[in-house]
Design a protein around this nucleic acid. Structure first.
Lengths: 366, 366
DNA sequence: ATGAAAGCGCTAACAC
DNA sequence: GTGTTAGCGCTTTCAT
């Protein structure tokens, strides 16, 4: 009951609170709150005093309390498959940059393809009161999502998701980039083009494979069933797949991979063999992770820009979170893909070497 | 004043609260709180009823509120230099797994070597009420830390940090692993061993270089000044450095790199030249990131285990955070390093080829 | 324009 | 063992 109650030192940190600022600036805590939140009705004179006090006592608003009362945490959830797959750190980085710049914090989690882990991840995110979640696992584990859906919770998916009011989806245009890749290969003279897919339980892996089939049909080539093998989007998977492919009687002269890690695996699998890239086999990746520029040879690949993905994800999330966001009604967010030609593709062996491509060939004799 | 006040639907989400559970289980909110927090004094019968109610109404405790009252957020901050450097995702992953398993959440941030960004990162972490921060940037940006130090805030550094009560440091034993590497090389017969350092403003880069010099002295070799060149811990830096090294009149027969990305850069820089690895030049990395096993040839490297680092970091943090942690007094946490021999090191050219090493040589004629 | 006061959902004394 | 109650730091009516 005594007026002095400062010394209730149960708390670990003696955080400086809004009251300290108020006392110092000789205003009410309400005024401090208004000033700090830049509410226009506050007298400039007082605001100045408040900010001065804030500085002097080193006040940092407590986000927990803020979130508790406002009901919004300003945290965006981001779920990826595995953070050690090089594609994801780049995505995470972009996402984080954008989110922070727009006043949000990011809570990241990786599923490692483990449903139990994913379940607990989601629970943790809910518990932390994230404002919305972007699920960028490219089409696996969608069941789990029901839990989130029940609460009318802003959610962003890649490729496809349940048709529900609070769900937005990033529609990646696999067709465009893959068509460009196939046309590029066909134009070089390739007829036997193989495809190493991702794990087919992954929605986006299926989409990429289908895009390949469609593109092959469009250029008038038959995609032989034996030339379409399932990989798993890892380097190891790529090595295994290319071994299977090179053991075939009708050896493909080019191989398109469902992601870059697979393509890197192909490069490695071929390294100790007599098949040289691109002299004997042309290789094309997908994703365009930073690393592939430094491969030997630098990889031709279909780019799916992390920046595009991250930008759309953050926007779509905000559209779902903020009461009157201009694009609140937009459900589908298109993501383009495009071919980036580097050095891992060339004319099939035995074809007339073109002068314009000599640069690419020069490195095949290393 | 009316008893019905449920419909104050200003909040975005109609979160189910502890009160709903209490009502349903027909107990007080205190009992719910106790049951949920597994406090032993609660009657098993009631506890059961509470958990049933929790399930039925889908109650998820609100962490924000919990943190607000308890003064602990159960969030650990983790600051790394750049998340796109492959070493860090592995670290982050380990750290996160451990933290989550021990009931903590983690807030990650990368500095990108930018002081402004770092400053705001720290502010954000403070604002979010993290319980402690591990600064795993390997010795850059230490100034900024004063801000945290003022509040008596649990902090973990790598290699070295201000001598203060709440600071713990992970002491990486660079000497051990680097000594093993130099001895390995010397035993193979190398006399001209070069070293590509990291950026020397980085404390750990200096430590590694010094460990190299010391190890060279120990085996009775002179580390020529021209054979110690500064890199920047990137692949590009490694490529540049090896170019400088191979331009030297006294060509080194082996090169030790301050990290794996540098070593990978060396491999690439050498790829199109006549110098083959390990036939003409042996190369050794540092870190042992996952990737190096798949290089061509697989890289011999000094392993600094992410798992060791992460384990120690989480433990040290908890020691600082939890009131009576058994190791609360421990300030220094040792981290071992050790050599992992793979295929990128061999006898210097011209020396008698050893039969036991033929496997490694076989791949040099690719 | 400013202040007083009512909670946000929860934990921790403190009673019973 | 269980319930009542006082806040944690903040935003936001509601008066003034």
């Amino acid at each position: 009951m005594s007026p002095v109650k400062k010394s209730a030192s149960k708390r670990r940190r003696a955080a400086v609170s809004i009251r300290d600022v108020a006392r110092r600036a000789r205003v009410s805590i309400a005024t401090v709150s208004r000033a700090v939140n830049r509410i226009s009705t506050v007298d400039p004179e007082l605001a100045k005093r408040v900010w001065k006090a804030v500085d002097e006592v080193g006040y940092v608003p407590n986000t927990q309390a803020r979130a508790l009362v406002s009901g919004r945490s300003h945290i965006l959830g981001l779920i990826v498959s595995e953070i050690t797959n090089p594609f994801f750190p780049e995505l995470v980085q972009e996402f984080e940059n954008l989110a922070v710049a727009q006043g949000y914090e990011v809570m990241i989690g990786s599923t490692n393809y483990d449903p139990v882990r994913t379940e607990s991840l989601i629970r943790r995110m809910l518990q932390r009161g994230v404002d919305g979640v972007a699920i960028m696992t490219f089409g696996i584990e969608e069941e789990l999502v029901k839990k989130l859906v029940e609460r009318e919770f802003p959610l962003v998916f890649v490729d496809a998701g349940p048709e529900l009011p609070n769900i937005r989806v990033l529609k990646v245009d696999y067709g465009q980039g893959i068509r460009e890749a196939v046309q590029h290969l066909a134009a070089l003279g390739h007829r036997q083009i193989a495809f190493i897919s991702g794990p087919l339980r992954m929605r986006s892996a299926v989409a990429r494979r289908d895009a390949f089939r469609k593109a092959m049909r469009e250029v008038g080539l038959a995609a032989s069933a034996r030339h379409i093998v399932e990989g798993d989007h890892t380097m190891e998977g790529g090595m295994t797949a290319i071994e299977r492919l090179t053991a075939l009687p009708e050896l493909p002269t080019a191989v398109l991979c469902s992601n870059d890690m697979t393509a890197i695996g192909v490069l490695h699998g071929l390294y100790e063999t007599t098949h040289k890239v691109p002299r004997d086999i042309s290789v094309v990746g997908f994703d365009d992770i930073h690393l592939v520029q430094f491969m030997l040879p630098p990889l031709t690949t279909v780019q799916m820009s992390c920046k595009d993905l991250a930008t759309a994800a953050v926007q779509a999330l905000r559209a779902g979170i903020e009461p009157d966001h201009p694009k609140a009604a937009q459900k589908e967010w298109p993501i383009p893909t495009r071919l980036v030609v580097r050095k891992s593709t060339d004319f099939p062996r035995g074809t007339l070497p073109a002068l314009s491509k000599s640069a690419a060939r020069r490195r095949t004799d290393a």
